[in-house]
Measured scan of single mutants.
Amino acid sequence: LKLEELTVSELRQQLRLRGLPVSGTKSMLLERMRG
């Protein structure tokens, strides 16, 4: 599964599971997911 294919709400869910901030735009969330 490519990160880009996730919805913003799915990205936020994944970030929350990792204890990361869930604020910002989709591109910011993607950068955060990539670490």
Rank of each mutant, 00 (worst) to 15 (best):
K2W: 11
K2C: 11
L3G: 08
L3R: 05
E4D: 13
E4Q: 07
E4S: 09
E4C: 04
E4A: 02
E5S: 10
E5F: 05
E5N: 13
L6N: 11
T7P: 09
T7V: 00
T7A: 04
T7K: 10
V8N: 06
V8E: 14
V8Q: 02
V8S: 08
S9C: 07
S9N: 15
E10S: 05
E10I: 01
E10W: 01
E10Q: 10
E10D: 06
E10K: 06
E10T: 01
E10G: 04
L11K: 02
L11I: 10
L11Q: 03
L11E: 00
L11D: 01
R12W: 09
R12Q: 14
R12E: 09
R12C: 06
R12S: 08
Q13C: 11
Q13K: 14
Q13M: 11
Q14E: 13
L15V: 06
L15C: 15
L15G: 06
L15T: 05
R16G: 13
R16M: 13
L17M: 12
L17G: 09
L17V: 13
R18Y: 09
G19I: 05
G19F: 02
G19C: 03
G19A: 01
L20Q: 03
L20F: 07
L20Y: 08
L20R: 00
L20D: 02
P21Y: 00
P21T: 09
P21R: 06
P21C: 07
V22Y: 15
V22G: 10
V22N: 05
V22T: 15
V22R: 06
S23N: 13
S23R: 06
S23V: 11
G24R: 00
G24V: 01
T25K: 10
T25P: 08
K26V: 14
K26A: 13
K26L: 11
K26T: 05
S27W: 09
S27A: 12
M28C: 06
M28R: 10
M28V: 14
M28T: 13
L29F: 03
L29V: 01
L29S: 03
L29P: 00
L30M: 11
L30C: 10
L30W: 04
E31K: 12
E31W: 01
E31V: 00
E31G: 08
R32L: 04
R32A: 04
M33N: 02
M33I: 12
M33E: 11
M33R: 02
M33L: 15
M33D: 06
M33W: 03
R34N: 15
G35W: 05
G35T: 01
G35R: 05
